[in-house]
Design a protein around this nucleic acid. Structure first.
Lengths: 167, 167
DNA sequence: GTTCACCCTGGAGCCAGCTCCAGGTCAAGC
DNA sequence: GCTTGACCTGGAGCTGGCTCCAGGGTGAAC
């Protein structure tokens, strides 16, 4: 990552002028612009997440601004926990949003409930971990954390629980 | 899963009396008791998560209550987001908790911050997904969700945002 | 005409945590 | 003695999302 950055800094925008002006980029340029590796870009094409990228006569991939826009979309959707398969769906819909609204909404709503379920689990988990850590600070024999996992966090430990506000 | 349940219901506790009274179980019994598959149990042994299980003269695994206790520990720790590798560590410490307290605490604290970081991400994500869905209900052309992902949720959509309380 | 960075392909490998399979053994009941 | 079901082993396969590699082509600069 820092390698990628310093490489691009050192060699500068070798996005050569011709390609640069014509809104044409080679895979290395795109890698630098998006932070994705060239391997990943070829992989995305291979799994059809990107439509077949244009090629020069000699077979070198030539990306355009449109591809960059798709890639940015992919990266954002990925941050939103969409899988590549789901992103594929979203990209198709992106080509024709009007027709696809309900479907997009469904996907998004499903993703939202997934996220909420996960949040729920993690909140419970956090509470348990905090409890265990607090017990640990207060106890001076045995290991309340191990015991806590053994007996499912507060089954017997409960009465000693008023120990350090639980933040 | 329902198969496993109905199978155990149908054939009953064929945990035969001998083994039953002696606190000895075969792999199928343990599978029924823990909900783990026999394959998984063998796998845990193979990766040394369980110490080598006792065998009959003919090579059949014979589990004891101690193994069940370990497996319960594993399942609980797994629910607490510990990886099998981490659980391996915890199990070692469980054998000698006094000596291991600091290490256990370290592991737990690390796990807690992992969980908190993840919670943070997911909270942001939830906010964005909710915003997108609300926009979607309010708009009647285009697809605000797609556009939202395109422009990183609320970069331009912000002024139309007073749309249905955001719960 | 050689060097060099960059690009190409197909295919293997990696991570975790299983899951499945073929081919064989064991033990209890009829 | 035969059937049946549970068990054994080693090893392959799966999911998702890459990552790496060998072996070879391209094209601009010196």
């Amino acid at each position: 990552m820092s390698t990628a950055l310093s490489a691009s800094a050192a060699k500068g925008r070798t996005l050569n002028k011709r390609r640069d002006r014509r809104d044409e980029y080679r895979i290395g340029d795109i890698a630098r612009l998006t932070g994705l590796s060239a391997d990943t870009l070829r992989y995305y094409e291979q799994i059809k997440l990107l439509p077949a990228v244009n090629r020069t006569a000699s077979g070198i991939r030539v990306y355009t601004g449109k591809d960059i826009s798709r890639l940015n979309f992919i990266q954002r959707a990925q941050k939103m926990n969409f899988s590549l398969a789901e992103i594929g769906e979203l990209l198709k819909m992106r080509e024709d949003p009007r027709r696809a609204r309900d479907e997009v909404r469904r996907l998004t709503a499903a993703k939202l409930s997934e996220v909420e379920a996960r949040l729920n689990d993690l909140n419970i988990l956090r509470k348990e971990l905090r409890l265990l850590l607090n017990l640990c600070k207060a106890s001076d024999d045995g290991c309340p954390i191990i015991e806590g996992i053994d007996r499912k966090v507060g089954e017997k430990t409960r009465q000693r629980r008023r120990v350090k506000a639980q933040r």
